[in-house]
Amino acid sequence: SLQPGALIVGSIRQLCLVRKISAGGAVLHADLPMEEGQRLELELETGEQLDGVIAWKRGLEFGLRFEERIDILPILARNLASQPGERRRMPRVEIAAPALIETGAGTELVTVRDIAQGGSKVETPHPLAVDERVVLTPEGLRPIEGVVRWVEGRIAGVSFQAELPWQELIPWLRARRDAGPAPFLSEASGGESGSAARTGEDPVDPGLHLNLPARVREGTRRWSIDVSTLTTRNVEFECFAALRLGTLLWIVLPGLEGWPARIVEIDGYRFTCEFTQPLHPAVLERVLALA
């Protein structure tokens, strides 16, 4: 059930299958003698023509890097529109979105790793149990009842009791894309001031010593904290809550609605958390400007 596409190299046109498509590139399956670094054009069945370079190759699978980042949602929407109305189904979409999950043991903050109409893959601070009934509430979406189908460590597959209509999913995905601060959007806009943190590696940034009022959410609990250090990758704060190592928190900073971070170090009442996705340097600058 992979979507077909066409690869165009010079005058050669060959059918391929699209395994994955993202803003920056695609994973394709094709029987074509191609080399890394080779340029070609991918034509999707919805008509988009995308120029790219082969980034890697393994057997008949290869990764294509697009010359220009693309917006996935219009392609997804056209794909849906091309399907007959009564059988229209959304493909699975990879995303990193904070969500609350209610289980028999309580409520926890988790990260939605992908979502489809029938279910979702979530990353949880503690392993879930197979056949466990849950209610998943991705940020900005309504609560969805589901059952845990499989568990691999902290990743679990949840199938929804009732299908989520694509009419709800598409606006949610659009809102997530537009809300930012998704790093790829800021990056694509370019023209940032050239700071050392721009590479995302933070090689020399020791963090800023702050006394920044912020909030934390963990499950349904929320409280105020004083952030002492903030970098694109880490946040450090003092708090008197009993929190376990590895817990996923939602850090709410001035001008930033919330960003998931996992506790990586506890020293008395001092907690160090690592953001599950680094903050974009421009976002860090904005937070600090508002502080």
Binding site: S22, G25, P91, A116, R177, A188
Partner: peptide, 13 residues
């Protein structure tokens, strides 16, 4: 099924 990804990266090997 074909997977769509909102992230900007080239899917890794």
């Amino acid at each position: 099924d074909t997977v769509y990804s909102l992230s900007g990266d080239v899917p890794p090997l």
